[in-house]
């Protein structure tokens, strides 16, 4: 039945262009198979890691005879071990994620980012998983490798619907508890709720040694508040609606936005999160390219 599901959030042309930019973890990963990412366990990769003193029982094949010849002491030469990573998405599916034009809501934008990154990760041999805050973790898809599993992730992305209050903080805490091994956790949300509890949730992830990235999706209209006439604003998350004259509250609205961003920035800087504020009028390819380049030490400077 999956064939009948349209995966229009995947654009082959975009994927083709992004494939040249590998998805890299900023921290070492504990993978089950060999991959592109550093592992805390030393292995037989080509990249030199360190010297250490020989202890009985070590594999004598890894003795560095040249150092023995110079110093008359036995040293073991160690190399980095490359492994794969677990990429896990947490997608906000609150009602506010339905904001935007009909052709591209915020959730659509989130799908495109998540789908593209999942595809790139799968192509690198990394495991991909997904959980959303809408249905709790009943619909959790654990991180696994393989094309078939990728298809399941895509299907689940397609089925996501925006409704209700945001439960992102709860979802983050649950993910931190359930994902035992180090993983790259990508959060995609509009963060349109009181930011204070977010600080603790993100620190929870960092405590479990996860590499955390956050895409903060906003619409230009939400920032500018460019309205001319009195408007009744209906809460997309089911709250109360009220009538407001934009000319009266425009200035105060912008003050509120400014204060909000200051608080968000402070939380992100404190939690050491790979934070990306994305305005949805920006092509998602551009946002992804900036994200991928920023994670590669060789291209990070140009990305910023």
């Amino acid at each position: 039945m999956s064939d009948s599901i349209q995966r229009d959030f995947l654009d082959p042309a975009v994927l083709g262009r992004l494939m040249g930019l590998p998805l890299k973890s900023r921290h070492s990963m504990v993978g089950s198979v060999s991959g592109r990412h550093r592992s805390p366990v030393k292995g037989s990769a080509l990249e030199f890691a360190q010297y250490r003193k020989y202890v009985p029982g070590d594999d004598t094949r890894r003795l560095d005879w040249r150092t023995w010849g110079r110093t008359d002491r036995y040293y073991i030469k160690e190399f980095e071990a490359d492994t794969n990573l677990r990429l896990c998405f947490i997608v906000d599916t609150s009602g506010s994620m339905a904001f935007g034009e009909a052709a591209q809501t915020r959730l659509d934008y989130a799908r495109r980012i998540a789908g593209s990154l999942a595809y790139i990760a799968a192509q690198q041999g990394d495991a991909v998983g997904l959980c959303s805050d809408s249905g709790g973790f009943d619909h959790e898809i654990p991180a696994k490798r393989g094309a078939l599993h990728l298809g399941i992730v895509f299907d689940q992305l397609t089925k996501l619907k925006a409704s209700g209050d945001s439960k992102l903080v709860t979802a983050i805490h649950q993910a931190a508890e359930k994902i035992s091994q180090r993983a790259l956790i990508v959060i995609i949300s509009d963060l349109l709720f009181d930011p204070a509890p977010l600080r603790e949730a993100l620190q929870h992830l960092r405590f479990r040694k996860h590499d955390v990235a956050l895409f903060h999706l906003l619409d230009q209209q939400e920032v500018d508040f460019d309205f001319d006439h009195p408007t009744r604003f209906v809460d997309m998350e089911g709250g109360a609606s009220f009538l407001a004259d934009p000319s009266l509250i425009e200035r105060r609205y912008r003050d509120a936005v400014t204060n909000y961003f200051k608080e968000i920035d402070e939380i992100m800087n404190h939690s050491i999160i790979d934070y990306h504020r994305v305005l949805m009028n920006e092509p998602y390819e551009q946002a992804l390219a900036r994200f991928l380049m920023g994670r590669n030490p060789k291209t990070a400077r140009s990305a910023r």
């Binding site: 509009d190 408007t231 609606s241 003050d255 909000y260």
Partner: peptide, 20 residues
């Protein structure tokens, strides 16, 4: 004669009304 808009960023609106 207002129009009705579904709005996501109610957080900012509520703050703006409080300040206004």
């Amino acid at each position: 004669r207002h129009r009705t808009v579904e709005w996501a960023a109610m957080l900012f609106l509520i703050d703006a009304r409080k300040m206004n």
